[in-house]
C-alpha cells in the first residue's frame, strides 16, 4: 500500500462523480436542462489538461536547473497525457454542443461551421497545436541532451505566451461559450448551484489524479526503456 492512497482516492472520487453526478438534483436552465451534468466531465477534462500542462512546464524548468534526463521524460509524458485530456474535452464538448448550440431543425453537422468558429474552441485548438508542435520539435532532434534542452525551452516559452492568451482572449472576443464575464465554469452566481459544486470539485480532483496515475505508469515504462537502452 506504499503511497497508493491517492490512487484509491481517485477511484473513490470518480465513483462518486459517476453516481452523484447522475443522481443529484441539478438546476434546470432553459437551454441546458439535464445536459448540465456534462459539466462534471467536459469541464473537468480541461481543468485536468491545464493542470497537467502546468506539471509538464514545471518539469521542464526542473530539467533546465538540474539537467537530469528524468525530468525531461516527465515533461514529455505529462504533455502527451494532457493532449489526450484535451481531445477528450473536445469530444465531450462536441456532444454537449450538439444538444445545446446546434440548430435543432437541421442535421447536427449543418451547424458545424457556426459552432467551430467560436473563439474558445479556437483557443483550445491552438493550445493542442502548440503541444503537437512541441512533440514534432522533440522528434526532429537526434541528440538526447540537445533534444531535452531545446524542447524544455520551447515548452516554457509556449506555456508562458499561450496560457495568458487563451485565458484572456476568449473574454475579449464574443463567444457562445459560457463564462464570458468571468470565470468559465466557476461562475457561482449564475451558472452552477452549490449543489453542483459538491460534485464538481471532487470530480476535478478525481480526473486529475487519474490522469496523473496514467502518466506515472507511462513514465515508469519509458524510464525502463531508457535504462535498457543505456545498458
Amino acid at each position: 500500500m506504499y503511497k497508493s492512497w491517492w490512487k484509491i482516492a481517485s477511484i473513490i472520487l470518480l465513483l462518486y462523480t459517476f453516481t452523484a453526478g447522475f443522481l443529484l438534483e441539478v438546476p434546470r436552465l432553459p437551454p441546458l436542462q439535464e445536459t448540465i451534468r456534462n459539466l462534471y466531465f467536459h469541464v473537468c477534462m480541461w481543468f485536468a489538461m491545464m493542470i497537467l500542462f502546468t506539471i509538464s512546464v514545471v518539469n521542464a524548468v526542473r530539467y533546465l536547473r538540474t539537467f537530469n534526463q528524468k525530468y525531461d521524460i516527465y515533461a514529455r509524458q505529462y504533455a502527451v497525457m494532457a493532449i489526450v485530456l484535451g481531445l477528450l474535452g473536445y469530444i465531450t464538448g462536441a456532444i454537449w454542443a450538439s444538444y445545446t448550440w446546434a440548430d435543432p431543425n437541421k442535421p447536427v453537422m449543418n451547424s458545424f461551421s457556426s459552432i467551430a468558429r467560436d473563439p474558445k474552441l479556437i483557443g483550445a485548438a491552438i493550445a493542442l497545436l502548440v503541444y503537437f508542435a512541441y512533440l514534432i520539435l522533440r522528434d526532429s532532434i537526434q541528440d538526447m541532451d540537445k533534444k531535452a534542452r531545446i524542447s524544455a525551452v520551447y515548452n516554457i516559452f509556449a506555456y508562458a505566451i499561450l496560457f495568458p492568451a487563451i485565458w484572456i482572449l476568449p473574454r475579449i472576443l464574443p463567444s457562445l461559450h459560457p463564462g464570458n464575464d468571468g470565470n468559465p465554469a466557476l461562475d457561482v452566481k449564475n451558472d452552477i448551484s452549490g449543489n453542483m459544486r459538491m460534485v464538481f470539485y471532487p470530480a476535478v480532483i478525481g480526473w486529475t489524479l487519474l490522469a496523473v496515475w496514467i502518466t506515472t505508469l507511462k513514465i515508469r515504462l519509458s524510464l525502463l526503456k531508457e535504462k535498457k537502452m543505456m545498458s
Binding site: I122, L129, V130, L137, L169
Partner: peptide, 13 residues
C-alpha cells in the same frame, strides 16, 4: 510549425 499556434492569439487580438 512552432510559431503559428503561438502567434494566432496575438494576431486575433
Amino acid at each position: 510549425v512552432l510559431g503559428f499556434p503561438i502567434i494566432i492569439p496575438q494576431l486575433l487580438l
